[in-house]
């Protein structure tokens, strides 16, 4: 789209778009093409020679049980993070929306974790869930009688990074649910109230269905977040361990490429990730407008 009234100039528009194009070309397109090319090459560890091997890297990748496990771990992890943070965010937003007093204060108290870096959230939760010093770990051990040790057991480590990742996301979800709820016309709620619907019923049959676009949008955003931005949490807290049990896809790209120097495989993994995110983006644009609106 363009404005009805626009300027005419020979060089100025090119000059104005130039910085953006330059940065996009050098840091998006060139690397993306390089990555795709590299994923078809097999190079020796010293980077001296490389041979064209067609889909060898991809075949290796999808027959590698470690990679398949990493895919499974990533999906488990991201679904858990999305479920925990969305339900908590929705719950708190529903409560805050009902509260009449001090809404500004409530918002202030709930909003700040958004600004905490994932890695920092990881450090704080590591301390809370630390097998020897953590207060929550102590509660789990003594009250629930579970032999909690995220340093040794994969499941515990997974639970720990899910908590650290979901905690930070709660405030993000809260902001969106809050905005979504405030956009619901008051008259709808009042009409239902006059018809005798209880507050719980009103939430379940009116607010909740009307929030379905927000819900879908947040699911996508939370899954993308847990796919990529949680790298900092994994790197500070578990380093993919114990025994690869928290080795999510992004961390594996980093490990194979920068630590293992298996360039071809790392590039192929990057391409897989890129395709994945393109599919997710496409789904979002396609479905967010059409299917989910007012599904209730």
């Amino acid at each position: 789209m363009i404005k009805r009234s626009f300027f005419k100039s020979k060089y100025l528009p090119y000059l104005l778009i130039f910085p953006q194009m330059l940065v996009t070309l050098t840091f998006f397109y060139w690397p993306a093409i390089q990555g795709i090319l590299q994923s078809f090459l097999l190079s020796d560890p010293f980077g001296q020679r490389s041979t064209f091997v067609w889909f060898y890297n991809y075949i290796e990748l999808f027959t590698d049980p470690l990679y398949l496990e990493s895919i499974f771990i990533t999906f488990t992890f991201s679904i858990a993070v999305a479920a925990v943070s969305i339900s908590l965010g929705l719950f708190i937003a529903a409560m805050a929306n009902r509260a009449l007093k001090a809404t500004a204060l409530v918002r202030t108290l709930l909003i700040w974790p958004y600004a905490v870096a994932p890695a920092i959230s990881g450090i704080m939760w590591l301390f809370l869930l630390h097998p020897s010093y953590g207060i929550i770990a102590l509660a789990i051990k003594n009250v629930m009688g579970i032999d909690w040790n995220p340093v040794l057991y994969g499941k515990d480590a997974m639970a720990m990074i899910v908590m650290a990742s979901a905690w930070k996301q709660v405030s993000y979800n809260f902001v969106f649910f809050m905005a979504g709820m405030q956009a619901i016309p008051k008259s709808l709620i009042e009409a239902a109230a006059i018809d005798g619907a209880s507050p719980l019923k009103r939430f379940w049959f009116i607010s909740f269905p009307l929030l379905s676009p927000t819900f879908f949008f947040l699911s996508v955003m939370n899954i993308i977040y847990s796919f990529f931005e949680t790298f900092g949490i994994i790197h500070t807290v578990t380093q993919g361990g114990p025994g690869g049990s928290t080795n999510i896809l992004v961390y594996k790209v980093y490990q194979d490429g920068f630590v293992g120097l298996n360039l071809g495989s790392s590039a192929a993994q990057s391409v897989v990730l890129m395709s994945l995110i393109i599919v997710i983006t496409f789904l979002q644009f396609r479905f967010v407008e059409k299917k989910v609106q007012y599904g209730g």
């Binding site: 789209m1 363009i2 404005k3 626009f6 300027f7 005419k8 100039s9 100025l12 528009p13 090119y14 104005l16 778009i17 953006q20 194009m21 996009t24 998006f28 397109y29 060139w30 690397p31 993306a32 390089q34 990555g35 590299q38 993308i224 990529f228 931005e229 790298f231 992004v250 790209v253 980093y254 490429g257 920068f258 360039l263 790392s266 590039a267 990057s270 990730l273 890129m274 995110i277 393109i278 997710i280 983006t281």
Partner: peptide, 30 residues
Amino acid sequence: IVYFDYRFRKIAFASVFCTLMLPVEVRILP
């Protein structure tokens, strides 16, 4: 993009728009 009309306007916009959701994490090595 919005206030000028020129030949590469649409291409420029499309090429920027395509990068909308490619975080640095998916193309780290290159």
